[in-house]
Nucleic acid binder design. Structure first.
Length: 844
DNA sequence: GAGGTGCATGTGCTA
DNA sequence: AGCACATGCACCTCG
């Protein structure tokens, strides 16, 4: 059925009915008039066609029949570039000029490595083509131009694959429609690479068919070095055309047909640069970097479903070199941006279903089969290609890729490119590193995927650095399909793992601080459970965040809690023990009737407030420094932590317990916490006797001994330092604030206090008799301490730096003071004997 | 307990 | 709504 261009000024007709080109599928593609670029009416679009005899293709779904007709030169052009839909007429035209052998793709190409049959363009079919061409009223001059263009271009940017495509399409002249379903064009592409059954191998020049016109082609084919800038012609200014004589040139010289302009516009428009096909050029990049073209996938089962995101984007240069190096034809199949999972230790690379089914051997068993894939260095890897049933579908994975990925030093965000080497249909795996990690954060949109814009591809040693503009060039941005999904590649995780900066700002608080904000669930009553003689509050509901308050303490020792009204922002004084809900206003101030309204004056004058905040700020800085220091000193290794934990009975962190109803567990754990840490008996209490010599106990003892020696060394170093800086007294602010909870304590920095407590506890443990008590009771640390044979000066200094009272009160170490002192005295007399861990260290 | 394996689930995209 | 895919997670094996 003929179609008339909607553009009244054009009214061109064609017998071609278009369906969405595979490459433009998601681009809101419409069939365009080859003449003016306007869209035809009544576009036919259906992906699932099947062939019928006599040049018709019928949609399996809707039954609509589409006639195979000539496609506008634009499409031919596209075809050439991406292996798209073939055009009989153009093919014919081409044929008359180049007379080259053609390949016909078998209908069913198993495994994507199907065979091809060759044919020559000179067959009877050509006449048909010619006729048709005439029939469709295509401007011959334009076709000539097109043909010339092709001729000029092909040698340079038509890898065998593409040529094969062309050929294949041409071959279909046999009255079979050329209308290929989306992606079918792509089929053609690779064909080239495929080893044609029976005849010429385009890859090699040795095919040497002495036909005029074809010669160039062959030469080009023969020379892998020849790139195929499929896209370039459309968008690339002449000046940057890698291959002079490109279409653009001529177009411009001859005045590009409107349709082409339209087409071009389509490609360039920022909005729908979706089509990966986009071929385009990277303007301003000059010759240095070739366009990273999204090459249509090679033929393969179901390749028509292959999303552009997986189209291999190898630059001509890369491909050239690769092909040249391998002295064979490289057919880029598909690529994939590594996700965190892919690059993780699991060693499983999730394969896009369509790709797996199109290019990898068909598998019917979940176990799959081993797949040998060569890496860029020629090393061969064997992966297990298999699938998992998933939602009535399959999920294909390559297992055992970790070594390979590590070998290539790939990580999430990098791209692996699967290609095929012909002859031999060997699989080869190349990669492209994500050049701009930042982009990755942005999500998919960025660089990685398809990485058309940036990144360097490594294919057999071919690396290419591309100019980036914040990761990509404008052109890139135009070219690259705005595949949102790509973001997912890097970042789906990105979405899960990354947060916007504002969010991050919001969350800039430490775990301790966060703990301070946790409150037992409102209106939830805890169930008291007894575990090993310990009472635990158990809540059914998770904790909630409460309002942040600050604590102050006057020199008199009186503690105060302050909260800011969410409504008027005035600060109100509250009882110390009060826990506020997340949202709190003056009206909620039931403790001070005189200030239970926002109209009530502020209790704290501006000066005081500023002072408070300033102190708070300073404190925070110190706290950070301190915590880092402590972390470095006290937690030099996981082993240390282990030993320390063993010694302290998992109670190491208790010292830092904030003011809000701490449990006897780790600072992270609040009242009501029912996590394993909180509910399990401390340090194996009741599980191991002091004399136990089980493997666990022995191991811990052994490690503890190592720890002791190490600690000892550090300790003496610290002592030396302290001795030097002994005179340095920490100035006390009138208000000192607990950075985490905001506690303001008189002459004491609670937070520092906490740190000190931690340290003291640890040091006490470290310098104790070295007994390893797996049964130690967190509530009876005094026992442990009591057995201490030595306490370092450090401990004393730390202990002296804050009210012992508080320390003891918070830790229930009523008798610690005297012990500390006495132990300190002991230590001063001689080096404490860390000694071997002994089993004698009973909790009692 | 660490690591591997297979499946389930959640999220985002496409039709 | 259905699909693809990234990731989580329970279960299993092994050292």
């Amino acid at each position: 059925m003929d179609k008339i261009c909607m553009n009244e000024a054009c009214q061109a007709t064609t017998s071609v009915e278009w369906k969405k080109g595979w490459g433009l599928k998601s681009d809101g593609f419409a069939t365009l008039c080859y003449n003016c670029g306007s869209a035809y009416e009544n576009l036919v679009y259906c992906e699932t066609f099947h062939r019928e005899e006599s040049g018709w293709r019928e949609c399996k779904l809707c039954g609509k029949r589409i006639h195979c007709g000539c496609i506008a030169s634009k499409y031919l052009h596209d075809y050439l570039d991406f292996g798209g839909v073939g055009c009989i007429s153009c093919a014919k035209s081409l044929e008359t000029r180049s007379k080259r052998p053609i390949q016909i793709m078998s209908d069913d190409i198993p495994n994507g490595f199907g065979k091809l049959t060759t044919n020559n363009i000179g067959d009877p079919q050509s006449s048909v083509v010619e006729n048709r061409m005439d029939g469709i009223g295509v401007d011959k001059g334009k076709l000539m131009l097109l043909s010339k263009t092709m001729e000029a271009k092909e040698p340079s940017y038509c890898p065998q694959t593409q040529k094969a495509d062309i050929n294949a399409c041409i071959g279909q002249t046999k009255q079979e429609e050329i209308m290929l379903p989306i992606g079918e064009a792509s089929m053609c592409f690779p064909n080239l690479v495929q080893q044609p059954v029976g005849s010429s191998t385009f890859a090699k020049s040795d095919t040497g068919i002495p036909r005029q016109g074809v010669k160039d082609m062959y030469e080009s084919l023969a020379q892998p070095s020849l790139g195929f800038s499929l896209s370039t012609p459309l968008d690339t200014p002449n000046s940057v055309l890698p291959f002079p004589g490109g279409v653009v040139d001529r177009r411009e010289q001859n005045k590009v047909p409107p349709f082409q302009q339209g087409q071009r516009t389509r490609h360039i428009l920022p909005k729908p640069p979706k089509a990966g096909l986009t071929i385009g050029s990277e303007v301003n990049k000059g010759m240095i970097s070739q366009p990273r073209v999204a090459r249509p996938p090679a033929e393969g089962r179901g390749r028509n479903q292959l999303l552009p995101r997986y189209w291999p984007r190898i630059t001509d240069q890369e491909l050239q070199q690769l092909s040249g190096d391998l002295n064979s034809t490289i057919v880029p199949l598909f690529e994939k941006v590594l996700s965190a999972s892919d690059a993780g230790r699991i060693g499983r690379l999730v394969l896009p279903k369509a790709c797996a089914e199109a290019y990898f051997p068909p598998i019917s068993q979940s176990e799959g089969l081993p797949l040998r894939i060569q890496d860029i260095k020629g090393k061969e890897w064997t992966f297990q290609f298999r699938f998992w049933p998933n939602n009535n579908s399959r999920m294909y994975v390559l297992e055992g890729v970790t070594p390979c990925i590590q070998n290539m030093q790939l990580q999430a965000g990098d791209t692996v490119i699967f290609s095929r080497i012909d002859p031999g249909a060997k699989l080869v795996m190349g990669f492209r590193k994500a050049s701009n990690p930042v982009d990755m954060e942005d999500g998919q949109t960025s660089a990685i995927p398809n990485g058309a814009h940036s990144g360097e591809t490594s294919f057999n040693g071919v690396n290419e650095n591309q100019l980036t503009h914040g990761g990509r060039t404008n052109e890139d941005m135009l070219q690259r399909p705005p595949e949102k999904k790509r973001t997912r590649n890097i970042g789906p995780k990105s979405k899960r793992l990354l947060m916007h900066s504002e969010d991050a700002m919001e969350l800039k608080l430490t775990w301790e601080e966060a703990q301070e904000l946790l409150r037992p669930p409102p209106s939830a009553k805890p169930t008291i459970v007894m575990v090993e003689d310990h009472e635990f509050e158990e809540y059914d509901e998770p904790p909630v965040f409460g309002k942040r308050t600050i604590f102050t303490a006057r020199s008199s020792g009186e503690q105060e809690q302050w909260a800011q009204c969410d409504s008027c922002s005035k600060w109100r004084k509250l009882p110390v023990e009060v826990l506020l809900p997340p949202h709190w206003t003056c009206t909620d101030n039931i403790w001070d009737s005189s200030r239970c309204s926002c109209s009530a004056p502020d209790e704290m004058d501006l000066k005081e407030l500023e002072s408070l905040l300033r102190v708070s700020k300073e404190f925070k800085k110190r706290k950070i420094t301190e915590s880092h220091k402590v972390a470095l000193e006290c937690e030099p290794s996981g082993l240390d932590a282990l030993a320390t934990a063993a010694v302290l009975g998992d109670n190491v962190g208790d010292s830092g317990e904030p003011s809000v109803g701490a449990t006897t567990k780790h600072p992270r754990h609040r009242p009501g916490c029912t996590c394993i840490v909180c509910i399990q008996p401390p340090s194996g209490k009741g599980k191991h006797k002091p004399t136990c010599i089980c493997n666990v106990c022995m191991t811990v003892k052994r490690r503890f001994k190592t720890l002791m020696l190490r600690k000892k060394k550090r300790q003496s170093e610290r002592e030396a330092e302290i001795a030097l800086g002994k005179d340095q007294d920490t100035p006390k602010d009138e208000f000192e604030m607990d950075g985490t909870s905001g506690n303001l304590l008189p002459h004491i920095n609670h937070s520092e206090n906490e740190s000190s407590q931690s340290r003291i506890q640890m040091e006490v443990a470290e310098t104790s008799t070295g007994q390893l008590d797996l049964n130690c009771d967190p509530n009876r640390e005094e026992d442990l301490v009591a057995d201490t044979t030595g306490v370092s000066m450090t401990s004393l200094v730390h202990a002296a730096s804050f009210p012992l009272e508080m320390y003891m009160r918070q830790n229930g170490l009523a008798s610690l003071g005297p012990h500390l002192l006495s132990e300190a005295a002991d230590e001063s007399e001689g080096c404490p004997d860390v000694g071997e861990p002994e089993d004698s260290g009973d909790e009692g």
